[in-house]
């Protein structure tokens, strides 16, 4: 187990004074986030608080204006997005991100394909990808999509698309997952399934997730960071954070 007296130990991801300025509008302001290895960490906050922007910064989809990002102790502030993904930190998107005209199986296979090391081989037949079908079906099985393997992704209902997206993300066997509102727009049943899935995959991984559904957060997450107008308002376990008067005010304020 990690030694709680050694600061920094047990952290998989850390940001230091992370700031993003969109031409004068500060969307993320001086955020120092610490995510412990093996935990499920929630990032919550009202709409426009900067949660998605934090994800974009962490995965290098946006360059930070200032501050640093450390992943497994390594400074990744200057990495390219694909590099971050290859280091094992893989994100999902707030708006469902499947490959619409690929079949369900092909969606997952694209993610698996990189491991073959033949992704630049334009002279090779795509029959060589068939070796991945077994693994792809296993992954689809885990989200109850194996039966729909030949359905084109665009034809799936929304909740099923999100499940496919998670299966695709898991195909990379990432050490750390960033999930941006994974249950958004889902029916009750799908939410339950996704929660169970996240719990299962988080057994040997770290998850950082943005989530609006507070019962999901309470159920799943070890640590919660509350973001408001780009800054960290509170951080801690659910029980503690949910009693914080500032957080209550922010949430009630946002609801009105």
């Amino acid at each position: 187990m990690t030694d709680p007296t050694a600061p920094g130990d047990g952290l998989i991801l850390e940001t230091r004074h992370l700031t993003k300025d969109f031409r004068g509008f500060v969307a993320v302001s001086d955020v120092s986030l610490r995510v412990r290895r093996g935990t499920i960490h929630a990032l919550i906050g009202p709409n426009g608080a900067g949660k998605t922007t934090v994800f974009n910064l962490l995965t290098k989809f946006l360059p930070p204006s200032s501050g640093a990002i450390l992943y497994r102790g390594e400074d990744i502030t200057r990495d390219r997005p694909a590099e971050v993904a290859r280091k094992g930190m893989v994100r999902s998107f707030q708006v469902s991100a499947v490959f619409p005209n690929l079949t369900v199986l092909e969606n997952v296979r694209v993610a698996l394909q990189r491991s073959l090391g033949t992704s630049f081989h334009f002279w090779k037949s795509d029959h060589s990808l068939k070796v991945l079908h077994g693994r792809a079906l296993e992954l689809l099985e885990a989200v109850d999509l194996a039966g729909l393997r030949d359905t084109v992704a665009v034809e799936l209902p929304y909740g099923r698309k999100r499940a496919l997206e998670i299966a695709t993300t898991l195909a990379l066997d990432p050490e750390m997952l960033l999930l941006d509102e994974p249950t958004q727009g889902m029916g009750h049943e799908d939410v339950g399934r996704v929660v169970e899935l996240i719990r299962r995959v988080a057994a040997d991984r770290t998850v950082l997730m943005v989530e609006h559904n507070l019962s999901v957060v309470a159920d799943l997450c070890h640590t919660i960071t509350v973001l408001q107008r780009g800054s960290i308002l509170a951080e801690g376990p659910y029980a503690e954070v949910s009693r914080n008067p500032q957080v209550l005010e922010a949430y009630i304020g946002a609801a009105e």
Binding site: P81, F99, V110, T118, L129
Partner: peptide
């Protein structure tokens, strides 16, 4: 024809379908 139906071609198709997603899967788009 071969390029379209190659492992490389499948990555191209994924880029065409959803570039940010292909990037987030670790492909240097």
């Amino acid at each position: 024809y071969r390029t379209i139906h190659s492992p490389f071609g499948h990555v191209l198709r994924s880029i065409r379908e959803n570039e940010p997603r292909a990037l987030s899967l670790g492909y240097d788009v």
